[in-house]
Design a protein around this nucleic acid. Structure first.
Lengths: 233, 233
DNA sequence: GTCGTTGCTTGACTTGAGTCAATGCGGCAG
DNA sequence: CTGCCGCATTGACTCAAGTCAAGCAACGAC
């Protein structure tokens, strides 16, 4: 890889655990790769051969049943880590929701490097613990929240995840943003159908909590009310 | 703690990463604690002050909304690790489903110990990755499976988790076992109501896939058919 | 014994979300 | 400009699961 030191996620990705020398060593193992929207990086059930850091773009982690039902079990943003280090087949597929750029490693070379760098493993552990907490919050959503609560939660989550680019702590969240996914994919994240997603968005628009200038753009007009709805109070 | 070397989960818990000397040092930091059914070990939203290994019994991790809906986001069995190391408040409460025994540490002393023991962190990372995979599989269940598929999945999961005690690799799963939870709690794990749980269990019984000799006992009579149902084919 | 209590099951009815089927709309190729 | 194509929205209807309300069975206290 050419230049980790100038990488836009240098200070947020797990690489931030490494000093310049270590970073140089790691950079020899990986390479940047562009992934275009819709492209699949890893298939569900395949042996886990690669891991990666997200540099730019948004990707989804998806599980599907034999009869074609799909559930998106994770959405990864820049600086997030992708993959299943230390063996095991990947229990989900990884797919680009938008054009993206990742910094990719073979699993075996990454594993070897990680074994010798406890600080890197520590960062990875923290990240995995955070991801687990997020997954559990999502379990509450999928098990117990109503359709409108789910939509409200998703919009706020995306607003936060897109806002926290870290570069500018001025914007902890965004009041206007582009959805990195279409209606079907929103349904797949929320455990709903495309029609229910559409209807609930219309309701939130009619209630003036949000505006939808075009299919992909969301404006949060009343964050407080949206938050109350999301928190299922 | 008196005697880690003779601990029943010695070879399966994260402690298996440690040599006898290290184990001796860790044992000075922790203590065994008996927890009785229904007792709460950690409250949702409280600062995470303790972590623990489960020695005996089954505990649940639960999240609830302001208006009283509950979702169980994890069930932990002997040798599993409980808690949120490295800061952060606990996003869920921890509750004993059965009488249990845990080996408990203050978070800060465990954190300090872990910092100096990369092998322990490595074990913890692997365990957390496994737990994350399990949580994601459960997201598929909560988002996309029907009531009967959910029940079938839960019964098989409990059969496997109770079977894999590690002590005897003879029994990879059990065909008869005691449910470590009541109907309400099954509903809370599956995102269903108590009535739906009861009705679906009756259906599985009528279809002769299982038998229910008493409220808490389950006998798997046709594992293959139950598995087909669970896999949502 | 019999009275409560607690947890589970069953039945009748309601409802939130799914299904099926048009219709609408914005962009782009020709 | 026109017509098509790929989403997205909307409407009418269905159905799986939830709600509300009895009953039932096992167990312990007295």
């Amino acid at each position: 890889m050419s230049d980790c030191m100038s990488c836009v996620v240098r200070n947020r990705a797990i690489c931030s655990a490494l000093n310049p020398d270590e970073l140089g060593a790691l950079s020899k193992l990986g390479r940047k790769q562009v992934v275009s929207r819709g492209q699949t990086l890893v298939w569900e059930g395949d042996e886990s051969l690669v891991v990666a850091n997200v540099i730019r773009g948004v990707l989804k982690l998806g599980v599907s049943t034999a009869d074609g039902r799909e559930q998106i079990v994770g959405v990864v943003f820049p600086s997030d880590f992708i993959g299943r280090p230390f063996g095991k087949e990947s229990p989900y597929s990884v797919n680009a929701l938008t054009d993206a750029e990742v910094c990719i490693f073979t699993r075996s070379s990454f594993d070897d490097f990680a074994k010798d760098h406890p600080d890197l493993q520590h960062k990875l552990l923290q990240r995995t613990l955070d991801e687990l907490d997020r997954a559990r919050q999502w379990m509450m959503l999928l098990g117990r929240k109503t359709a409108s609560e789910r939509i409200a939660t998703l919009l706020l989550e995306i607003s936060n995840r897109l806002g926290n680019t870290g570069c500018s702590s001025i914007a902890p969240f965004l009041d206007q943003f582009e959805l990195p996914m279409d209606r079907q994919q929103m349904g797949d994240v929320l455990g709903l159908t495309i029609e229910t997603v559409s209807r609930q968005l219309t309701k939130l628009k009619e209630a003036e909590m949000i505006a939808l200038p075009d299919r992909r753009t969301v404006v949060i007009k009343d964050r407080q009310r949206l938050q109350n709805l999301a928190e299922a109070a």
